[in-house]
Write a protein that binds this DNA or RNA. Structure first.
Length: 177
DNA sequence: CCCTGATTCGC
DNA sequence: GCGAATCAGG
């Protein structure tokens, strides 16, 4: 099957509606989810409203060489590596859904210039904007963030964690109260 | 192990 | 442009 105009349109629609690649592939028929994902990327609509699953830690591992099958004569491929890789951010930001997040917060008090060592480094606002700032509240010991943001940064881990023993829990509560 | 999207690269 | 292979992660 090929990507007819119609099929592409269906793809877009379903993708925007939040269907997964495999579901779309199944519905379209004749394509695998890989094909769908590949198409989605080529169409440039990779980013989608992701409720909660930031599957991109800004991590770019060097792809391991994939054993290719050269059928005819093996073409010479003298180390034609791309010397320049995009520079990575030194410090990985905590995952945040910037684009369309109703999550509003008070502007931070610190800028990249005034951000101290013991200040909460939680980014607030659009990094490409002038109003971008950091939380700037006193960070909790050991963590780059204040108590509140620390909770957000080091998320729930969905599976309920084992129970804290009561003593610790109440102790911690007292600290915050 | 099931699933998810992301990325690479031979075709 | 296409998509299988592969990856990273929930």
């Amino acid at each position: 099957m090929s990507w007819t105009d119609e099929r592409v349109e269906t793809l877009k629609k379903l993708w925007q509606e939040g269907h997964s690649a495999s579901q779309i592939a199944k519905q379209l028929g004749g394509v695998t989810r890989n094909a769908v994902i590949g198409k989605v990327h080529r169409l440039g609509l990779s980013g989608r409203a992701a409720p909660s699953q930031p599957t991109r830690p800004l991590y770019k591992p060097a792809r391991p060489p994939r054993p290719a099958a050269s059928t005819t004569s093996h073409a010479e491929r003298p180390a034609a590596q791309t010397p320049v890789r995009r520079s990575e951010p030194v410090l990985a930001r905590p995952v945040i859904s910037q684009p369309v997040t109703p999550y509003v917060e008070e502007p931070g008090t610190a800028t990249v210039l005034t951000l101290g060592a013991k200040m909460c480094k939680w980014p607030i606002g659009d990094p490409s904007s002038d109003s971008f700032s950091f939380c700037g509240r006193r960070s909790d010991d050991g963590t780059p963030y204040c108590v509140e943001h620390g909770r957000v940064a080091y998320q729930p881990s969905q599976k309920a964690k084992k129970r804290d023993n009561g003593a610790d829990l109440s102790r911690n509560l007292r600290r915050y109260l």
